[in-house]
Design a protein around this nucleic acid. Structure first.
Length: 805
RNA sequence: GCGGAUAUGGUGGAACUGGCAGACACGCCGGUCUUAGGAGCCGGUGCGAAAGCAUGUGGGUUCGAAUCCCACUAUCCGCACCA
């Protein structure tokens, strides 16, 4: 008999059997209990799988395998998010076509993933760079164009000088390019935009329909950034009293209008370039200096307030009727609100700092603080003062009263604002979906018709990004020059491509029907599988992919493609995994692990177990080689105990309670992604089995363990289990009555201090428990015949006896 | 500054709804088998000689607090001149 556990042999064996048998293919049959379980599909980079991948994949694989054993028809797909800069940069460096780079990387990834024994549905693999796939990415874009949600606009965008490409706001982290940490510059460019802001309110409201962790929901809420306030008009006049129209401001504190002692406009505001301004040279210098600053510099230098007064102009505070000066300062952003503010230095920190720097008056209009020392920004406790008809009101009431007053006088109205900006949706690079729009000198922007999709990426010799900010596609004249689909005149194609986020914004829909050529997916398939039951992914995608894909899905819902307003029923997030030294994994530091190496050395099952055992799935954790050994040891023990088990199939009564307890624990822990404690429970069960057990006992453990260590369990199931494969076996069910012992140990305390334990029958009454506690020698000695003054009994848990004096 | 989280032995980490803190594992110590052990198996292992003391710090509530409340500190993540 083979008594050696040899993962190197049994793992490839089972991987082949699973694949050949198609055991993990989801069925599109009717009347089944369906479960759609999703991981974020990987970007197939050249270096292959790294430590970050196996953790979420293994976690979700455990869930998928468990669900199948519980009788569900499970969709657990994988695909490749393969457009994007790294493949293109690699292609440039090594002079290989990006599509070939992707093909090689995918082959590598697929092999690595297979060697880890994941139960992905191999028949539904998708690839965002496949024209049959991106046809539908382009189709969705055209639908958005049709509805006015995709538009071209000339506006300041984030430009990465290193990637030579624009970035979405979400891709700029602290002023730096997310990908290469180069400070992003601001450039004025005509760009394709998607009007995600049109969905801001719904993206916020519908968070209530989703089961998201609080940190995810909070982060999205924050990013959408809703605020309620008012827009107010301030008349602008020249020194001579001549009217120049109104200056509109947005404020969340209309109640403080009486305290507005000056105004500030952004350097980009049209009024800053007004011809009537007397100190034109000075203001113009300031505007140029601000324009030159990158966003990075503008935020880094944030705290020092600079600015220039517009001489020859002033505004009129509509509440007080007083003339107040207007300044230009870069602490006011053109991109939020109206690009102009009323400054209330008494009650806004930034205004206070500016007023101090420029010697401007500070007026207290909300009592409660000391505005000579700092701005008083509290809105809960203050009462209005120096504010005419608002005097004596609390802030909330003052806001209401002011809104009425503004409406009466026609000076302003309530407004809701969001921090969320529209999505910059074009990149000046080669390796992305071509935007299916033609620029016609006669008709303007003309969309391709549906039958002209997919618009394929042309072959090029040179993918180098250009210094001018034009896409490499612009150099392919054959491709660029085309006939207008509408009038036939000679026209030019759009040469920008879509960002990497395009393909991933709807991929989960394609899995439901991956080969459909007539629709992005059939209605039946979408209804069968959507919404995704459980989507696990990384926190880093909360404001990017998660928000973008919710937006696209809502749009598809609006045009009748999808039946549900939200794509994901439940979202969880695995913690970030750090290197063995507690820092971010990096190749140079050699603090990570190579999955292939661990598979070779210990086996895939050991790797799967280790990566889940190492800590709480949803919290961050540190990779450590130490844990591998213990997990491999455990599998060896399962191997030996299975061989050593008595041939009897009946369960041993002594173990029965432990078995039911473990089934309960493992089943419940998997639902909560508490894989680490589930594994601990199985280790403990294994220890119990080692003291003597039957094959029936072992079979319970094998089924519980099989989602975690599927190869080993298949092998042992084949040897001792019985019919079929363990991946198709039934998940064990526990009997709640059998999870509890007949007797329990009560903790016995005297005056709150633990003094011993007493064994009593489960469910015994108070008096019996107290009597048992008093019977303990130590307690009896202490009591010396006295009865306790008081006693607290927690049934089946604890007795606390109180003796006074 | 705002929002979200975390803090428990030598280490990774457990602990239901307030009820025996340290499950499970690593490491370490001892034993055993062995020509040998960086293998296996068995036993021990929070600190303290003990009374006792222990869940980042300081208070509080309670018969009883890792858990609840208040005030801090430290670390991590996200956002940040958003009016």
């Amino acid at each position: 008999m083979n008594n050696q556990y040899t993962p190197g042999e049994i793992e490839p064996k089972w991987q082949k059997i699973w694949l050949d048998g198609g055991f993990f293919r989801a069925s599109d049959g009717d009347g089944l209990k369906n479960f759609y379980c999703l991981i974020e599909f990987p970007y197939p980079s050249g270096v292959g799988l790294h430590i970050g991948h196996p953790r979420p994949y293994t976690g979700m694989d455990v869930l998928a395998r468990t669900r199948r054993m519980q009788g569900y028809n499970v969709l657990f797909p994988i695909g490749w998010d393969a457009f994007g800069l790294p493949a293109e940069n690699y292609a440039i460096k090594n002079n290989i076509h990006p599509s070939e780079v992707v093909r090689n990387n995918v082959t590598h990834f697929r092999g690595q993933i297979r060697r880890l024994g994941y139960s992905f549905d191999d028949s539904r693999e998708i690839n965002t760079t496949d024209p049959a796939y991106y046809k539908w990415t382009q189709w969705i874009f055209l639908k958005m164009f049709e509805k006015g949600l995709a538009y071209k606009s000339n506006m300041p965008v984030n430009w990465c000088p290193s990637c030579k490409c624009v970035l979405a706001n979400e891709e700029v982290i602290g002023g730096l390019c997310e990908r290469c940490d180069t400070p992003a510059e601001r450039r004025d460019k005509s760009q394709w935009m998607l009007k995600i802001t049109a969905y801001a309110q719904r993206l916020l409201d519908d968070l209530d329909l989703c089961d998201y962790p609080s940190r995810v929901a909070a982060q999205q809420k924050n990013w959408i950034g809703r605020s309620e306030g008012a827009e107010i008009s301030f008349p602008v006049v020249t020194g001579g009293g001549e009217s120049l129209g109104d200056l509109r401001v947005y404020t969340t504190r209309p109640d403080t209008l009486f305290g507005a002692t000056y105004m500030v406009i952004s350097p980009e505001h049209p009024l800053a370039a007004n011809a009537i301004v007397k100190n034109k040279a000075e203001t113009s210098d300031y505007r140029c200096a601000a324009a030159k600053k990158s966003d990075f510099e503008r935020t880094e230098l944030a705290k020092d307030k600079t600015g220039v007064r517009l001489d020859g102009l002033c505004a009129v505070n509509p509440a007080t009727g007083e003339n107040i000066p207007i300044y230009v300062s870069d602490y006011v952003l053109m991109s939020y609100g109206t690009g102009a503010i009323m400054a209330v230095p008494g009650h806004d920190e930034r205004d206070w700092a500016f007023a101090k720097a420029f010697g401007l008056p500070v007026i207290e209009v909300v009592a409660g603080g000391d505005v000579t020392k700092e701005a008083f920004t509290d809105t809960e406790t203050g009462v209005l003062v120096n504010s005419g008809f608002l005097n004596g009101l609390e802030v909330a009431a003052a806001k209401v009263r002011m809104a009425e007053w503004l409406k009466e006088k026609g000076l302003g109205e309530p407004v809701v604002r969001f921090k969320l900006r529209d999505w910059v949706f074009a990149r000046q690079r080669y390796w992305g979906e071509p935007i299916p729009i033609v620029h016609c000198p006669v008709c303007g922007m003309v969309p391709l018709s549906e039958d002209q999709l997919p618009l394929r990426l042309p072959e090029v010799k040179n993918y180098q990004p250009t210094e001018t900010g034009e896409s490499p596609l612009a150099a392919i004249t054959d491709w660029v020059h085309t006939a207008c689909p509408k009038c036939g005149a000679s026209a030019k194609r759009e040469t920008d491509t879509m960002p990497q986020w395009a393909g991933s914004s709807w991929y989960f829909l394609r899995y439901t029907d991956p080969n459909n050529d007539n629709a992005l997916a059939s209605k039946e398939a979408l209804e069968r599988w959507m919404p995704v039951d459980w989507y696990n992914g990384g926190m880093e995608h909360t404001t990017l992919h998660l928000l973008y894909s919710r937006f696209w899905h809502k749009f598809l819902y609006d045009i009748g493609i999808c039946a549900e307003p939200e794509p994901y029923k439940k979202r969880t997030s695995h913690g970030f995994i750090l290197g063995s030294d507690g820092t971010k994994i990096s190749k140079t530091k050699n603090n990570g692990m190579d999955p292939d190496e661990v598979v070779r050395g210990f086996g895939a099952d050991t790797l799967r177990l280790t990566i889940l055992f190492i800590g709480d799935f949803e919290k961050g954790c540190q990779w450590s080689d130490k844990a591998i050994k213990g997990c491999r040891r455990f599998l060896e023990r399962v191997w030996s105990v299975s061989h050593a088990a008595a041939k009897d199939e009946r369960i041993t009564p002594e173990l029965e309670i432990k078995l039911h307890q473990t089934i309960k624990k493992v089943t419940e822990d998997i639902e909560e992604l508490k894989f680490n404690t589930a594994i601990a429970a199985m280790m403990s069960l294994c220890t119990a089995l080692e003291k003597g057990c039957t094959r029936g006992d072992v079979k319970v453990l094998l089924r519980l363990l099989s989602p975690f260590a599927p190869h080993l369990c298949e092998e042992l199931w084949e040897l001792y289990g019985g019919k079929g494969l363990i991946c198709q076996a039934e998940w064990p069910v526990f009997d709640p009555a059998k999870t509890v012992e007949e007797t329990v140990e009560l903790a016995v305390q005297i005056n709150g201090k633990l003094r011993g334990t007493a064994t009593v029958p489960r469910g015994c009454g108070q008096d019996e428990a107290i009597a048992a506690a008093l019977a303990i020698e130590k307690v009896a000695t202490f009591a010396g015949g006295r009865t306790p003054d008081k006693a607290f009994v927690v049934p089946d848990k604890l007795v606390n006896l109180i003796f006074k004096g």
